[in-house]
Design a protein around this nucleic acid. Structure first.
Lengths: 334, 334
DNA sequence: CTGAAAGCGCTAACAA
DNA sequence: TTGTTAGCGCTTTCAG
């Protein structure tokens, strides 16, 4: 059997209260007995039970992470950064892929509540706002990553999507492109990227042509289809801003399918700067989200919340950064 | 406060024992009281505490997953399939990325033991064999995925690496390639892929040239470097078998850096069939691991073990399957 | 068919 | 400085 606090107490000739105190470093214990207890714990290879301690009202030291899909590189990379920070702070993370289904969101939240997780991190794509309100009502700490919900006052870490869109399009416009198309994903965060796109156009004196704006699901194929469609327009764009790397890679494929080469005939910029951007051919110019910082910061916010050393909810909006690679160039003179 | 079993007992006018029985569907309860209790549970929105029940010796319904890095697409995809099956079976999974560091392996295992996970799944790249033995000794269920440890009798689901290597190289040889190189990752599972490579060569009457065999770390850059080196050999290979998609993509880049085009001048095949293979340019011919089945099967094995309905450890070796895309072709006649 | 009561391993007053 | 004790929320005999 695994040793319990009773075993070490007995072995050390003290009470369980004393053992508990040395485990948690609380109360005042003489050096001598402390040393003795520590020694016995080591000898018995005693590991305090988190379960038992959680039952007395302490934390489970685990946090629930709800993301759309861990198999998506962007989310996997964010998850990794959160996991690392969580471990540094003494927490474990249980992962739940929701596939954007409210049914799963609900199921996993209630499951994790029963398991007494100390808090939740909800990634972009989380739809069930009413569940968040419920959590707040139950005083369960929640933080948002990679999206913001204006109507709710929550700890939030997101990226400045407007700025990201603006940067991407400015880059293209400053290269000399005048017909710039956008392929956006069908999610809320993309609204800001689109606004950034529009404002950048305007800043460069370009007119916004709604036939150059298209929204679709986030798959390589969808990106390819849309790009092909756009490139078959009578007045085709010379540049495409895709709202994530997957769509951008689809767009590259679409361009090639139309017999165009990237970046000579058409420039393409993505968003996220996932591993996909580095291995694409040509390497993708893309707007990088500071994934590492984002993960670290939400976890910090959430844990502070959990440990009660916070008075206010905090929203952090980090800046994206354009990473120029080889999928963009000046348009050919024609 | 969250309602407890006492609240519902009181509200329903029965004892907590009765409530417990209806929760767990144990013992014999009259339909009438059962219905009443159920009703009260619903009214109070009662959720039994997993923590409390775990303390009485029941399961925590959570399993620990140790993988090298969730940000690596191959592991992310496997993790996803395991997560799905776990949820279907009523378990949660907590993820731990070990970065191939024994220090982390040890830390996470001991952490999860304290949290009373019901079992562990250790993915390829797990090094600390002694820790596994320790788990076995403590009667904690363990299963292995994507690798096998011959010396240990464990539930294991892996892929036939030998066969995968054989398939990859057979494909190349049957296309007419005679100088086939291999870039392998520095991990044990790759030994079998190399044996498959060698045997396939022999089967096609080709001689094994050790200068065409190289081992390296698994990064795009390493793949590129090695490919460049190989392609600068006086008698350069006309095909490269890379032992995973990342290396293969690096190899494609290396080939291009040497002014060669894929697959016209050089054929390249990868391994894993991750998302990377589908977005690479050209799309990568690669050996697919049946990730979905693998995840499902380990989880099934582990859970059976956890629930004690198993008498023997089981090893499953699934077959890989060659997926032919556009990175391979017959060599040019010269 | 139902309930009383003894734990599960640990924490936190409160005494001593 | 150390120990006694009453829970935490649930499961499980064992009586009734």
């Amino acid at each position: 059997m695994k040793p319990t606090i009773y075993n070490v107490a007995e072995q050390a000739g003290v009470s369980i209260a004393t053992v508990s105190k040395v485990i948690n470093n609380t109360g005042r214990i003489s050096d001598k007995t402390k040393k003795k207890v520590l020694k016995v714990m080591k000898e018995l290879n005693y590991q305090p039970s988190v379960v038992a301690s959680a039952l007395t009202g302490k934390r489970t030291q685990t946090i629930g992470l709800l993301i759309p899909n861990i198999a998506n590189p962007f989310f996997a990379e964010i998850a990794r950064s959160m996991e690392d920070r969580a471990h540094e702070l003494g927490f474990s993370v249980v992962m739940c892929s929701t596939d954007y289904q409210q049914e799963k969101e609900e199921k996993y939240i209630s499951l994790l509540i029963r398991k007494q997780v100390d808090g939740f991190i909800l990634a972009s794509g989380f739809k069930s706002t009413h569940l968040i309100e419920e959590l707040v009502k139950q005083k369960i700490p929640v933080a948002l990553i990679a999206h913001d919900i204006a109507s709710l006052s929550l700890d939030t870490v997101s990226v400045d999507d407007y700025k990201g869109g603006y940067q991407a399009v400015s880059h293209l416009a400053s290269l000399g492109h005048e017909r710039i198309s956008i392929i956006a994903e069908e999610v809320r965060s993309n609204d800001d990227r689109i606004r950034g796109y529009q404002d950048a156009l305007e800043a460069y004196g370009l007119i916004f042509d709604s036939s150059l704006l298209t929204r679709t699901a986030s798959t390589v194929d969808a990106g390819k289809q849309e790009a092909e469609r756009l490139l078959r327009l009578k007045e085709r764009p010379t540049a495409i801003f895709a709202s994530n790397d997957i769509l951008a890679i689809g767009a590259i494929q679409g361009a090639r399918a139309c017999g165009l080469s990237v970046p000579e005939d058409i420039s393409i910029v993505g968003f996220d700067n996932t591993i996909l951007a580095t291995i694409s051919d040509p390497p993708l110019t893309t707007v990088a989200q500071p994934v590492h910082d984002m993960g670290r910061h939400v976890m910090d916010l959430l844990v502070e919340e959990i440990e009660g050393k916070k008075t206010m909810k905090q929203r952090m909006m980090l800046s994206p950064e354009l990473v120029v690679r080889n999928s963009t160039a000046a348009p050919l003179i024609r």
